[in-house]
Simulated assay, not measured.
Amino acid sequence: MTRGAGTNNVQGGAMVASCEAIAGPGDDSATPAAPQQRLISRTLRAHANQSRAMARIAEQIQAIPKFTTEAQERAYWEKHDSTDHLDGSKARKVTQPNLKPTTKTISLRLPQHLLDSIKVWLQEKLRTH
């Protein structure tokens, strides 16, 4: 990466401002703003490094092979990890509004005083809503 006074370098798809562009040519951190300028420079470099790392991850994603039988597919996934084939950075949050909540009956043995406390708490909660 070449640095010159007042230049901006583009590398890995991210804008990286050179130290000279931020601090000025020949600046040896003598000004009170130098720590802030160094912080900005480090932040820009970190962002560029992160962009390059994400590009490397995108290159490493493999295509999912075609299987002729379910047994072949099962054997493949027992030995391989899905993160080699899926890009988590492209994941989206989804909602499934038509799911029905399920209930299951369980038995718990609780001391009487704890059961009474739970009932009192529940009554208070129901009254406030």
Score class of each variant (00 low, 15 high):
H47M: 05
A34E: 00
P101A: 09
Q60R: 14
T31D: 04
N49W: 01
P32C: 04
Q11L: 10
P97M: 00
Q112A: 11
E70I: 12
G26M: 03
H113I: 11
A91P: 01
T102R: 03
Q112I: 10
A30N: 06
I106H: 01
T69G: 05
Q112R: 14
W77N: 08
I57R: 13
P25I: 14
A30L: 07
F67G: 06
R42W: 02
G12W: 03
V94L: 09
R38T: 02
G13V: 04
D27V: 03
V94P: 01
R42C: 10
E73R: 15
Q11G: 06
Q60Y: 07
Q62I: 09
S51N: 05
T31H: 03
F67H: 10
V10P: 00
P101K: 04
P111D: 12
C19R: 13
K125L: 09
E78C: 10
V16F: 01
Q62Y: 05
C19I: 15
L86M: 14
N9I: 12
H129K: 12
H80C: 08
P35K: 02
P111E: 11
R38W: 06
P65W: 10
N98M: 12
L114N: 08
A17F: 04
A91Q: 00
D84F: 12
I40F: 02
L115S: 06
A23D: 01
I61K: 12
P101T: 05
W121Y: 11
A5M: 06
A17W: 04
D84Y: 11
L99W: 06
V120L: 07
E124L: 09
T2E: 11
